[in-house]
């Protein structure tokens, strides 16, 4: 029995690798890919998703979604991923066209048609927030909602407080977090340090000697340089593939469940994922402080993964 996945993505270089992992997973059927403005504009995001699907020889419909955040000015991340999001290597335009239906409606239809659907979001949460606002009862029909986003109890990557996907449309992220969806949060911290692909990992993947593996490395060339500038760490940092790794098999992560909310009021901490890691909101002594403020929605938060196992899974997917 194959599991049904829907991938919502602002397809740039690490998204492409995550899409490949899902398309290559034998027990997964990707019913739809929906695109959103994020790393790159939504049209480019659609082109990149279609190109990635084509490269894998897969037959998955791609639906174009929302072109900008609900309220905030749209800020892309081409400085990180390259102008085309795929490191500017001049990949050819895809042959297949996106579907006519709007991504927001595609999400609603996919949830209704596939009870227990697993949604994996790799970009800003604008599409999913709008789908939930249009049809709130879909929240109860989703099996899991794996969100690549946030910086739970750690530093962010676009501001000291926030990770890009959540920061770029914090209102949408908050709508998703408070919607009752069974959210599993995969923060930015998980793809850092030893989870980064170093030279020997890259050599291993290049030695697989196939188009998809080469593409996975090549399209991240710009991201590698940007990551070095950003963090001082050398190598390819792959947040979305780590999220997909955990979506495919949650048992490989160390999770715990907490109240999670998203900061939307402050410019200083905009888009911060506030995680009640010590469960202080449940402590009677803190009731007057927190009871009303931070007791709305719970989410599973992944704290650590085994970096060797993650890299082995990635290599296996690219074989």
């Amino acid at each position: 029995m194959q599991r049904a996945f829907l991938i919502d993505t602002d397809t740039a270089s690490d998204d492409a690798v995550a899409i490949i992992m899902a398309l290559r997973a034998p027990d997964v059927r990707v019913v739809a890919i929906t695109t959103v403005a994020g790393n790159v504009d939504v049209q480019q995001s659609t082109r990149n998703a279609l190109y990635t699907v084509e490269l894998c020889g897969a037959d998955v419909p791609v639906f174009t979604g929302v072109a900008k955040p609900l309220l905030r000015r749209y800020e892309n991340a081409t400085w990180f991923h390259g102008r085309d999001g795929l490191g500017d290597h001049g990949y050819p335009p895809p042959k297949r066209a996106p579907e006519r239906m709007h991504a927001v409606d595609a999400i609603i239809e996919a949830v209704d048609a596939n009870p227990g659907l697993i949604i994996v979001t790799l970009g800003p949460l604008t599409n999913l927030a709008l789908a939930l606002a249009k049809k709130p009862d879909i929240a109860a029909k989703v099996g899991r909602c794996v969100v690549m986003g946030g910086a739970p109890c750690c530093e962010g990557n676009v501001t000291p407080a926030a990770e890009y996907n959540i920061w770029v449309d914090p209102e949408a992220a908050r709508m998703v977090m408070l919607s009752g969806l069974p959210v599993e949060l995969v923060g930015w911290h998980l793809c850092r340090g030893d989870a980064v692909l170093h030279d020997e990992d890259i050599t291993r993947i290049m030695n697989l000697n196939n188009n998809v593996a080469r593409f996975a490395i090549e399209c991240n060339s710009h991201a590698r340089k940007a990551y070095k500038t950003q963090t001082g760490e050398d190598g390819i940092c792959l947040p979305d593939p780590v999220a997909m790794y955990l979506a495919l098999d949650p048992s490989v992560g160390n999770w715990s469940e907490h109240y999670v909310d998203v900061e939307t009021q402050s410019e200083l901490t905009r888009g911060m994922t506030v995680v009640d890691r010590l469960n202080v909101a449940d402590d009677d002594r803190n009731r007057t402080v927190w009871a009303d403020v931070l007791r709305r929605a719970r989410a599973k938060v992944c704290w650590t993964i085994d970096d060797r196992l993650w890299k082995a899974a990635l290599v296996a997917a690219l074989q």
């Binding site: 927030a129 908050r174 709305r296």
Partner: peptide, 18 residues
């Protein structure tokens, strides 16, 4: 059309009023 506001909720409203 919509039954609930996009982000706001009665519960949050009541918290703010408190």
């Amino acid at each position: 059309g919509a039954e609930l506001p996009l982000v706001n909720s009665q519960r949050e409203q009541e918290t703010r009023e408190k």
